[in-house]
């Protein structure tokens, strides 16, 4: 069991979890929104939490697992401290978004287009279009948008997060008009 799994898994703040489930009135239709809330609380969907949701909401665990694996936003694995979303929308793709993700992968030594680094610092999660198509390629780290990223300034951005310093927005090449 990894360090962070222990941190979350053993000490699930049960009260908090209860209040999330209660907030959504135990309505079966609120399953997805309950899971979203749980994920934003714990950073991923811990197994214990899903078992509890099954009990409280009276939904077979199987069905919850099925929903949790269907939607891409849910993670059943603990995620890193910083979450990197790389936009792979069409506009970012034609502007070289694929090369940005390659670069991040190499920089973080990740095998796939996604996953968490061994030191639990970063989790890479590609997304399909953030709707910032004019500023592509776009990456979002911890909800901060970085636009017009180039393979060259990827490591600059990552480094600032791994150092734990507050990051000033890094914007790639400015416009010709400017």
């Amino acid at each position: 069991m990894s360090k962070s799994e222990k941190k979350y898994g053993d000490h699930l703040k049960l009260k908090k979890l209860n209040s999330i489930i209660k907030k959504n009135n135990c309505e079966k239709s609120a399953l997805i929104s309950t899971l979203l809330d749980i994920q934003s609380e714990y950073n991923y969907l811990p197994k214990e939490a899903l078992i509890m949701v099954a009990k409280e909401m009276d939904i077979p665990l199987n069905q919850i697992y099925s929903v949790a694996t269907f939607y891409k936003v849910f993670s059943l694995q603990p995620r890193g401290e910083h979450i990197i979303n790389v936009c792979l929308g069409t506009a970012c793709h034609v502007r070289g978004g694929g090369r940005i993700i390659d670069e991040i992968r190499r920089e973080l030594k990740l095998k796939d287009n996604g996953g968490t680094t061994e030191d639990m610092k970063f989790t890479l999660e590609p997304v399909r279009c953030l709707g910032c198509c004019a500023s592509g390629p776009v990456i979002v780290v911890d909800n901060e948008y970085h636009s017009q990223v180039t393979p060259k300034n990827v490591n600059k951005i990552l480094k600032k997060y791994s150092d734990g310093r507050k990051v000033k927005k890094i914007i790639g090449s400015q416009d010709k008009n400017a």
Binding site: K28, I32, V67, F70, Y71, K72
Partner: peptide
Amino acid sequence: IVRGAGAFVCGEETALMASIEGKKG
């Protein structure tokens, strides 16, 4: 408001409705 959870197919009407019901899209 119902939040989606990352599934393109939920733009399709019947999948969207399933998702609102709390099921797989």
